[in-house]
C-alpha cells in the first residue's frame, strides 16, 4: 500500500506546512509579533488557555484586523488558483493550461473592472465576485471553443489562444481605465498587478465560500478527470459523459478564478507551478493532485505574500509581480520540456 501512505504523508506534510506558514507569516510585518504569541492568541480565541498573548499593546488588534484577514485571503486565493490550474489542465489534457496564462484571469478582471467603472452594485458586496465569475466563465468558454481541435488541445494552439485573449482583455482593461475616474483607474491598476494589501474579513467572507464550493466540486470531479487523460473517445468508452464533464469543469474553473481574482487581482502562474510540482511528487492522479494542489497553493501564496510585504521595508510589492517573476521562467522551461517529450504531457 505504497500509494496510500504517500497520499496521507503528502497531505499531512502540506497541512503542517500550512500551519507553520500561517503562524510564521502572521508574525512578520512592521510590527513583529513572536510566532509563539501568534499561536497563543489563536489558541485563546479557540477557548484554550495556552501560550502567551501578544505583549505589544496593538499586537492583538494588528493580528486579528490586519494580518489574519490578509493571510486567510492569501490562503484562499492560492488554494483556489492552484485548484483551478489542476482542473483546467485535466480538462484540456494539457499541463500548460492555467487561468492567467490563457486569459481567464484577465477576462474576470475586465468584468470586475466594468462593474467598478460603471459603479454597478446589483449584488451588494458580492457584485464584483459575480462579475468576475461571469467574465471568467465567458473567457474559459472562449478558450475551450477556440483552442480545441478534434478533441485535443495542442500546446501551441493553447498558448496562442492565450496570447490573443490576453491582448483582447488588455485592450478592454485599457479602455476601462480611459473611461474611469481617478479612483477607478487606481483600482484597475491594482487588479492587473495583483495585491492582498488592505484585505478585510468581509472580502474573505465572500471569497472563502466560493473557493470552498469550487474545491469541493473539483474533488468530486477528480476520478473522471483521470479518465479524461485517455482522450475524449476512450474516456467515453469507460463511461465518462465527456461534454458534460467539460462544461461542469469550466464552470468550476470560473468559480475558483473568480474567488481569487475578485479581491486579489491577477496573480499568475500559481495554477501552473503548484500542480506541476505535486505531479512530480505524487503522480498525476487527480484524487490526490486536487486536494494537494489546494493546500500547496495556499502555502505558496501565503509565503509569496509574506515576501511581497517584507522584501522592502515599508513597501508592499504587488504579489502578482512576484509570482510572474518566478512563474514566467518556469513556464518557459515547461514549454521547452513538454515540446521535447512529445506525449509525455503536451
Amino acid at each position: 500500500m505504497k500509494v496510500r501512505t504517500g497520499r496521507v504523508g503528502l497531505i499531512s506534510a502540506l497541512l503542517v506546512l500550512l500551519g507553520v506558514a500561517v503562524v510564521f507569516s502572521a508574525a512578520q510585518g512592521q510590527l513583529r509579533i513572536p510566532p509563539l504569541e501568534v499561536l497563543g492568541s489563536v489558541l485563546h480565541r479557540l477557548g484554550l488557555d495556552l501560550g502567551p498573548l501578544p505583549t505589544h499593546p496593538r499586537g492583538e488588534s494588528t493580528l486579528w484586523e490586519v494580518r489574519f484577514p490578509r493571510v486567510a485571503m492569501a490562503a484562499v486565493a492560492g488554494a483556489a488558483l492552484a485548484t483551478a490550474g489542476a482542473v483546467m489542465q485535466g480538462t484540456f489534457g494539457n499541463p500548460l493550461a492555467e487561468p492567467a496564462v490563457v486569459g481567464v484571469s484577465s477576462g474576470a478582471a475586465v468584468a470586475a473592472g466594468t462593474v467598478i467603472v460603471f459603479d454597478i452594485g446589483l449584488f451588494g458586496s458580492w457584485t464584483i465576485a459575480v462579475a468576475a465569475f461571469v467574465g471568467g466563465l465567458i473567457t474559459t468558454l472562449l478558450v475551450y471553443l477556440l483552442s480545441r481541435d478534434g478533441g485535443r488541445t495542442e500546446v501551441v494552439t493553447l498558448v496562442l489562444t492565450g496570447i490573443a485573449l490576453n491582448a483582447l482583455t488588455s485592450a478592454g482593461l485599457a479602455f476601462l481605465m480611459f473611461l474611469g475616474d481617478q479612483q477607478a483607474r487606481e483600482e484597475i491598476v491594482f487588479w492587473t498587478l495583483g495585491s492582498l494589501n488592505g484585505t478585510r474579513w468581509a472580502a474573505v467572507a465572500v471569497a472563502a465560500p466560493l473557493a470552498a464550493v469550487g474545491i469541493a466540486a473539483s474533488v468530486v470531479l477528480a476520478r473522471q478527470l483521470d479518465l479524461l487523460a485517455l482522450g475524449d473517445r476512450a474516456a467515453r468508452h469507460v463511461g465518462v459523459e465527456v461534454e458534460r464533464l467539460r462544461i461542469v469543469s469550466i464552470v468550476v474553473v470560473a468559480v475558483l478564478t473568480a474567488a481569487a481574482v475578485s479581491f486579489c487581482g491577477i496573480i499568475a502562474f500559481v495554477g501552473l507551478v503548484v500542480p506541476h510540482v505535486i505531479r512530480m511528487l505524487a503522480g498525476p492522479g487527480h484524487r490526490l493532485l486536487i486536494p494537494a494542489s489546494a493546500l500547496g497553493g495556499a502555502v505558496l501564496l501565503m509565503l509569496a505574500d509574506l515576501w511581497a510585504r517584507t522584501a522592502i521595508d515599508n513597501a508592499d510589492l504587488p504579489i502578482g509581480l512576484l509570482t510572474s517573476l518566478v512563474g514566467g521562467p518556469f513556464f518557459l522551461w515547461l514549454i521547452r520540456r513538454s515540446r521535447r517529450t512529445a506525449g509525455g504531457g503536451a
Binding site: D226, L228, A229, R279, G283, G345
Partner: peptide
C-alpha cells in the same frame, strides 16, 4: 462494451 482504439496516447504520466 469495452473498446481498444488505435490511438492510445495518454495525457500526463499515469503509471
Amino acid at each position: 462494451r469495452a473498446v481498444l482504439l488505435q490511438k492510445y496516447a495518454i495525457a500526463f504520466g499515469f503509471d
